[in-house]
Amino acid sequence: MSAGAGPGTAAATTVAAATRAERRAGWLFSAPALLAIALFFVLPTIASLALSLTDFDIYALADIGNLRFVGLANYSALLGDPLFWTALRNTLWFVALGVPAIMLVAFAAAVLVNERLVAWRPLWRAVFFAPYVATLVAAAVVWKYLLHARYGLLNHALAAIGLPPVDWLGDPRWAIPAITLFVVWKSFGYSMLIFLAALQTVPRELEEAARIDGAGWWSRLRHVTLPAIAPAAGLVAVLAVVSMFQLFAEPYVMTEGGPAQSTITVLYLMFDQGFQWWNLGLGAAVAVVLFGCILVAALAPAAALRLFRGRGG
């Protein structure tokens, strides 16, 4: 409360100026949503931590009396499980391949849609965004057949330019890049919109001035456009990292985690442990590890930047 603020407009925004009816309405209006969030979001999230310290399994599901507190045993079991390391490595590969690819394609699409020389720009914008709206499972089914080794269109296109066919989803070396290709197609439209919003804040005059000064297309991009969209690029990167950490439906539909577990992700492992084998305690430990990864990946860039700036200044 800003007690020192004078009367009039400043006071109108403080709690002190509110009538009793308004304060009561504030709580009444927000209570249903807050209650739902507490019951169905916050409570389960915290309970995940607790659950990960127990041996909750199919026996405990039948009779809660079978539940035991096991401390960090689930975590040490995970660290000793090769499948966990495979899932983590696969997930990191998805992040490493997918994030730069999404940023690059989304940026190119945004530049194209923002370029005044291009005709029918709203049409292209809608087309680029359409895959993001499409139902993930349906699109994954379509891509499963597009990537098929024998009758898939992609191999057919490769053959047309003289390249040998690739067993995209059947070869452990190619399955991650192939699914990443699908994810980039599916999601670049969203990142494109964020880039587009940033590009539209670049003043046309600045662009014109650079042009008059004789700066070429590349040099204008490098010195005018890129600095202006740097914050948006950071946002796109963080959102892409977070979404790449949460891949599940893509491998579930396209490869069932295979071949040879080469596309099992951390979230897939949580689903398998929790709902296929009913090892809910172990599954919860996977969820907590995943949360830790996402938190680090989302907060690290900002923290690093702050540290870097702190030293510089």
Binding site: T13, T14, V15, A17, A18, E22, R23, R24, A25, G26, W27, F29, S30, L34, I37, F41, V42, L43, P44, T45, I46, A47, S48, L51, V242, Q246, F248, L267, M270, G274, L280, G283, A284, A287, V288, L290, F291, I294, L295, A298, L299
Partner: peptide, 26 residues
């Protein structure tokens, strides 16, 4: 609406945006 605890609630909710829904699914 102005009522005590509003700004704290908003800050907490903002922080909760970082928590993916899958974490609490089990």
């Amino acid at each position: 609406l102005r009522y005590p605890g509003r700004d704290t609630t908003v800050r907490v909710l903002l922080a909760l945006l970082l928590v993916p829904g899958q974490i609490g699914m089990l």
